[in-house]
Simulated scan of single mutants.
Amino acid sequence: MNTPVLPALFAAGNLNATYSYDTYMELMETVVRENRTTGPKQSPDYAAYTRLNLARMQRLNKTAVLDEDTIQLVNIIQSPQKWFVLTEAWCGDAAQCVPVIAKIAAVNPAISLTLMLRDENPEVMNQYLTNGGKSIPKLIVLDQDGNERFTWGPRPAGAQLIYDDYKQNPGRPFSELTEDLQRWYNADKTHSIQRELCEGIKKSL
């Protein structure tokens, strides 16, 4: 990959609303306690999604187990990498994926993980659109020189098929999509995201 990025784009002073994983979890707890979400769009539905997402993340923090192959590969990384994740508290796919990304990053101290809110970092988001849309979560991995090593997101390929099918059938209630995705994530047990991130890591070595 080795695609140069604008050094200023990810400079600490130019990023807004950035968090470690622990402080992001604290943010989730805060907005749920205040019956709201992150970002400019506030509604009872978004607050409800956020409350559900916090519960999912807390569960994954306790139950998600990394595959041995994943751990071995991540430990091969020697040169420092910076992992940036664009996310928001209301995003269901982020709730399923970000805890796994955080567990993988925590394996190797060469990896630093920074979470950032999508809507407060439009310059970054606009550089990493998916089919022209601001889909999240979005992981961007840079090396110590600021070169892009790989990107991933917004969801594993199996979940993307479910999402694409929903988009091709207008008129279906949104609740059907969320239920189908939840069943898929539950059955997959994080194996797909681990496998896909390992494919990216191999390219970064």
Rank of each mutant, 00 (worst) to 15 (best):
M1Y: 10
N2T: 14
P7T: 01
F10P: 03
G13S: 09
N14R: 14
N14D: 13
N14E: 13
N14W: 11
L15D: 02
L15T: 03
L15S: 03
T18E: 10
Y21A: 00
D22M: 09
Y24L: 11
L27G: 07
T30R: 15
V31A: 08
V32S: 00
V32H: 00
R33T: 12
E34G: 07
G39H: 00
P40A: 12
K41L: 13
Q42A: 06
Q42L: 10
P44T: 04
P44K: 05
Y46P: 02
Y46L: 15
A47E: 03
A47Y: 06
A48Q: 14
A48K: 13
Y49A: 09
L52Q: 14
N53H: 13
L54G: 09
A55P: 05
M57W: 10
L60R: 13
E68G: 01
D69V: 07
D69N: 14
Q72I: 02
N75Q: 15
N75V: 01
I76Y: 07
Q78H: 14
Q78F: 04
Q81H: 14
Q81D: 04
K82F: 09
A89K: 03
W90M: 01
W90G: 02
C91T: 05
G92T: 02
C97D: 15
C97E: 15
V98M: 00
P99R: 09
P99C: 11
V100F: 04
I101Q: 11
A102K: 03
A102I: 01
I104F: 06
I104M: 15
A106Y: 00
V107D: 07
I111P: 00
S112W: 00
L113T: 00
L115M: 13
L115K: 10
M116F: 12
R118V: 07
D119L: 04
P122N: 05
E123M: 11
M125V: 12
T130G: 00
T130C: 03
T130L: 05
N131F: 06
N131C: 02
K134H: 13
S135V: 04
P137K: 08
V141F: 04
D143M: 10
D145Y: 10
R149F: 06
F150D: 08
F150M: 07
T151V: 13
W152V: 02
P156N: 06
G158N: 09
Q160H: 11
Q160Y: 10
L161V: 13
D165W: 07
D165H: 13
D165I: 05
Y166F: 15
Q168H: 12
G171L: 02
S175H: 11
E176C: 01
E176L: 12
E176N: 07
T178Y: 11
E179K: 10
L181S: 05
A187H: 04
I193M: 01
C198M: 15
C198A: 06
C198T: 05
K202E: 12
K202R: 15
K203Y: 05
S204R: 05
